[in-house]
């Protein structure tokens, strides 16, 4: 049981990375990006092609995958979201769902629909055992890298000049523009960084799950619920909710072995939490 909880929490950290990417992009451009997970999917396949089936060194392959994630995110904003201009938020949802669908179709065309073996990080290292709990190699890496991203992300967001401009844009695009912030460029950076985060999440979760063009689906639905419960606003709430969802998914999925039961759980969980404690940022009556 405790192993279930622990590995669920670590998966939750990775969901949390994607959830934070969703919040990050939403804050900068008022768009809930439903393609956030599939950006990572494409990046993971790029890594697979370059470093597993090709012979690029792993470090370069990882760098290329992260860059690819960033590029896909940036291009989405540049080619589709930005030309749409200021529309209602429903439009953003529909458009990014269409983009997700295009990414998946493209991946199916290029890499096919069957599952691949994604090699575990650190090859045959058995992992670490603390107090009778074993963490496998990929899990240790997922834990470390997620925490690193959380730390780095908050320093970037709170301390750097770019972070200041990002926060300004997320508060008010118009006010930021009048203060000399290049709003479109900053939104582009947010999409780029969001893409990099998704790519990292995908690389971390890939060895722990079935790996095919749909493998980010479960990650994406969990991350989306976490971001929703955070009102697409608060990073810590998104991260916390994601860890909770990771644990719940793991425990419930283990108790009931029926496929897809965790998706129903997620739906019920989302509706229940939204009704009992609606996030302030999304409430209608103030």
């Amino acid at each position: 049981m405790s192993t279930l909880i622990l590995s669920g929490a670590i998966a939750g950290l990775v969901y949390g990375l994607v959830a934070c990417a969703i919040v990050f992009v939403y804050r900068a451009s008022r768009t809930v990006n439903l393609a956030q997970g599939d950006i990572g999917m494409v990046a993971a396949f790029v890594f697979l092609s370059l470093s597993v089936r090709g012979d690029l060194p792993v470090a370069l392959g990882v760098a290329a995958a992260l860059a690819c994630g960033g590029l896909v995110g940036w291009l989405m904003n540049r080619l589709v979201i930005s030309p749409l201009g200021e529309r209602d938020q429903g439009t953003g949802l529909v458009v990014t769902l269409a983009l997700a669908s295009i990414l998946q179709l493209a991946a199916l065309q290029i890499w096919g629909g069957s599952a691949y073996h994604f090699p575990p990080w650190f090859g045959d290292w058995a992992g670490v055992t603390i107090a009778g709990l074993t963490l496998r190699g990929p899990e240790v890496l997922a834990l470390g890298v997620s925490l690193l991203f959380v730390l780095g992300g908050s320093v970037l967001y709170q301390r750097s000049r770019l972070g200041l401009r990002l926060r300004a844009v997320s508060e008010s695009r118009q006010a930021a523009a009048t203060l000399g912030v290049h709003v479109k460029r900053i939104s582009g950076y947010a999409w780029l960084l969001g893409g990099v985060m998704s790519a990292a999440a995908a690389l971390l979760i890939a060895p722990l799950t079935r790996f095919d063009p749909h493998f980010m689906f479960a990650v994406m639905t969990s991350a989306l619920v976490a971001a929703l419960l955070a009102g697409f606003k608060s990073f810590p709430v998104a991260m916390g909710a994601a860890v909770l969802i990771g644990v719940l998914r793991n425990v419930v999925g283990f108790q009931f072995s029926t496929a897809g039961v965790d998706e129903v759980l997620l739906l019920a969980f989302a509706i229940a939490v939204l009704l009992v404690k609606p996030p302030a940022a999304l409430r209608t009556v103030t």
């Binding site: 949802l93 697409f232 939204l274 609606p278 209608t284």
Partner: peptide, 11 residues
Amino acid sequence: LKLRGLAVAVV
């Protein structure tokens, strides 16, 4: 009943 349309669209 309590939230903006965006939340329901995600649900």
